Simulated assay, not measured.
Amino acid sequence: MTNKISNKKELSLEQREELIGALKARFEKNMHRHEGFEWAEVQAKLDANIEKLWSLNEMERTDGEPDVVGHDKKTSEYIFNDCSAESPKGRRSICYDREALESRKKHKPENNAIDMATAMGIELLTEEQYRALQKLETFDRKTSSWVQTPSDIRELGGALYCDWRFGHVFLYHNGADSYYGARGFRGSLRI
């Protein structure tokens, strides 16, 4: 997988059917992530919001393995998060944001988490969302994922990331311009 984003923001009928098939199979295989939810209701939401399928496809294409992890009763939106066991392969080796990318003089990564998420039409998980995801099952045992960073930390050059080690979620800091082969980001999409 590459961490470049497709410029074409429409899916063919065949691509839509393939994506929905993959999402349905993942949904049915992982009912512990969304107990009490019915696929038919999720499918109806997807059918009514086909413009969001492109973003879900980008999550899938970059190895995020998106799945339903919640439902917002106020807005009636289903919440999809990346549920790959490790930080998505197609979104690793990237720094936090454009400012961090541009500040690097040597060995610049190809991209950054904030721009990639924006281009994909998704949002980085917050620390709270990351912790909630980890309550569903264990993720990032060998990798780590950038999370949304408060502006006061970012203004000082830092950025936050999380992982799962020793039976706990850990929140760490690093220079926003750092990047590692085992660090990417997890995204969220509401439909």
Rank of each mutant, 00 (worst) to 15 (best):
N30L: 09
A85S: 09
E60T: 06
S178T: 09
Q15A: 15
G21P: 14
G21E: 10
M1Q: 05
H173A: 15
F37E: 15
L101T: 07
T118N: 13
F27L: 05
Y130C: 05
E86S: 02
P88A: 12
I153P: 00
S76W: 11
T62S: 06
R98N: 14
D140N: 02
E99H: 03
A159N: 08
D152V: 11
I122K: 03
A176C: 08
R190D: 11
F80Y: 03
E10R: 08
L19P: 05
V147P: 01
D140T: 00
N57E: 04
K108W: 07
F139R: 03
L53G: 04
H107E: 13
F185H: 07
K142I: 06
S145N: 05
N57W: 11
R33M: 05
Q134V: 03
G121E: 00
L19F: 10
D47V: 10
W146T: 05
N3R: 07
H32D: 06
K24V: 06
E65Q: 14
T62V: 10
L101N: 04
K135W: 08
M31A: 08
I122Y: 05
P88L: 11
R165C: 06
D82W: 02
Q43G: 05
N112R: 08
T138R: 01
R190Y: 11
R26E: 15
W54N: 02
G21I: 07
N111R: 13
E155T: 08
D177T: 01
I114A: 01
Y96M: 05
K89D: 03
L23Q: 02
Y179L: 04
N49R: 12
E41Q: 07
S144L: 02
